[in-house]
Structure formats: structure tokens, C-alpha cells
Design a protein around this nucleic acid. Structure first.
Lengths: 154, 154
DNA sequence: ACTATTCCTATTGAACCTATAGGGTTAATC
DNA sequence: GATTAACCCTATAGGTTCAATAGGAATAGT
């Protein structure tokens, strides 16, 4: 998959807004500073998120951004799908961006990609900003433990 | 993830070689024709696969490529990891290409990406060319069925 | 010698990603 | 009503990666 910086930045900022849910707007300057995101770049990201209806803006002095939906109504899948475009590893197993392939009738590895896509989709779409926010941050040691206990290196 | 064309082409050709396992070499020209891969591009791919020890070459006239390992000894994970580089959705959950991130101590969505990575790794590394070859090709209808039965669009 | 093949390196063209830039609009505050 | 601090919009630059093409060298069967 390899998620883009835009997706990463979007998530960072969304969680800052979750923390301040219903406690007034936060200006881009502050969102950028806290999450180490280039301010000008973040402007574009915020406009996109506004268009998606995830955040609302208050213009003028003392303005800023607020979360415009309840944190349990925004899924990680929606965010990733918007900023990254598609989660399917290959076009022929994508539902929203299906691409025909001449090899389909004889293709042998499609099943595998379909399984990966389905699991990713299920996880991403059942995770909301709220449920993620409740969960504990993951430390790097757990990644290595995973490796030692059977997970393969990736 | 969005696997590269190189990965796609590599898989196509590998399965052609599986079909002909222990039945003599197949020239690139033929591999390219059958799998609709640009011949010159395939040359590079074959050289990489040779370096990885998956295929062997017979030079000169009547030459070509053969699978050099048993089909149950080559995993989909190995192929994807070589041609795509990394399956982890984000550097901070990658074992083989870990990238530090200043946000790690406060990051809330890492767990999700870690889960996606782990499941993908498990599937990819337990699937061999042989096991995939035994399975039936997947038709597009199944993808849409998945959509209707709860899988989200991706 | 001829021919069909693999081998190696370079380069091109396109697309995408990240970020920056310039200037316009809105509204609170003094 | 001027000032100021914020959002809004479009364009574009610089870098990287991907996909493919190109030219030719090495190898070996006939």
C-alpha cells in the first residue's frame, strides 16, 4: 500500500481535532505546528477534508477548523481511500476502481490479492477515529515481537 | 499497496514456468508473447529473478528460462517484497525498512496499519507458487459479491 | 560463419508526490 | 474603517519513481 504523506498528515490533524472535539476551532498554524506538517501543504489538505465534510472552517480572525462529524462517524477507510485513492493491491480486484485485465481468465494470483484487499477493507472501514483514538499507541517493540512470533518481515 | 507492473509481469511469467516445470527452457520471446509483457522490459525482470535464484537461464540458441526452485519453495511474499519493496502501509510498521517518525510516541493509527501489514504478510508468505497454482482463478463477480455481502468498496 | 538467444547499462517520457508561491476573501478587534 | 489574522483558490516547481525502449556485448547451437 504505502500510504502517502498527505494521508499521514491528514490522520495526525484529525486526531488533534478529535482531542478538541466541541471545544472551538484550531487555526491551521497551530495544527501544522503541533503535528509537524508544512503549513501551506496543510492548507490544501484541510480544504480537501472540508469538501469531504469531515471538518468545517470558521473564517476570519479567531477562525480555524473543527471536526464537523462525530469521531465515530469517520472511518479510517474513508480517509485512506480519499487521499490514497485505492487500497486494492491490483486493479482487477478493486471495486471502486476496477481495471479490466486481459489475463483475468487465466490469472492465478488474483485470489490472493483479493484476500488482502478484503481484509484491509474490513479493518479500515470498521476503524473509526473514535475507536482508534481509544486504542493505545503501538510501540516499535511490538513490531519486532510480531516478527519473532511468526509474522514475516515486511 | 498497489503492486507495480513489474510484480504483475513477474507473477504471470512465473506461472508459465510452473506449468512447464522440468520440461525444458522457454525463451523470453515466448514468455513475453504468452503473457503480454513487453519483451525488452521482461529481459530486465528475468535478470532480477535469476539473481534471486528463482529462475535459471540457458544461454545461446535453443536457450531460455526455467524455474530453478520447486514451485512450493517460492512464496508470493518473496516476489512482491522484491519487486515492490515493502508491503507495510507506512514506514513505522515496517520490519525490513523501518523509518523512524517523530510522531510515534503520540501516534494513534499505527496499530491499524500494523494489523493490515501483519495480515498481508501472513497471507503472502504462506502462499507459494504451487499453492496458488492449485487454486482456481477468481472471477470478477466474486469481487462484487464481496461488496454486497459486507466488504467495503476499495 | 550464422543465428537466436541471454546479458548489461543507459536513457527517455510520463506520472505522481511533496511542497511552495502569490494573491484573494472573510470577519473579529481596535 | 483600518488592521490583522485567519481561510480560500490556483498554479507551478522539483524530485522521485515507474514503465518502457535502446544499443550493443556475450554465448552457444547449427
Amino acid at each position: 500500500m504505502k500510504v502517502s504523506m498527505k494521508t499521514d498528515y491528514a490522520f495526525r490533524v484529525l486526531f488533534t481535532l478529535v482531542e478538541h472535539y466541541q471545544r472551538g476551532p484550531i487555526p491551521i498554524r497551530e495544527l501544522a505546528r503541533r503535528n509537524e506538517v508544512p503549513k501551506r501543504f496543510l492548507e490544501q489538505i484541510m480544504l480537501e477534508m472540508k469538501a469531504k465534510g469531515w471538518v468545517a472552517s470558521i473564517m476570519g480572525k479567531q477562525g480555524g477548523y473543527v471536526l464537523s462529524k462525530s469521531p465515530d462517524k469517520i472511518t479510517a477507510g474513508a480517509v485512506i481511500r480519499h487521499f490514497y485513492g485505492v487500497l486494492a493491491p491490483i486493479g482487477c480486484v478493486s471495486v471502486i476502481q476496477y481495471e479490466p485485465c486481459s489475463q483475468e481468465p487465466v490469472c492465478r494470483f488474483r485470489r490472493l490479492f483479493l484476500d488482502v484487499r478484503n481484509h484491509a477493507a474490513r479493518l479500515m472501514d470498521s476503524a473509526t477515529l473514535d475507536s482508534i483514538y481509544q486504542g493505545k499507541p503501538v510501540r516499535q517493540e511490538e513490531v519486532f515481537n510480531m516478527e519473532l512470533t511468526g509474522g514475516a518481515g515486511i
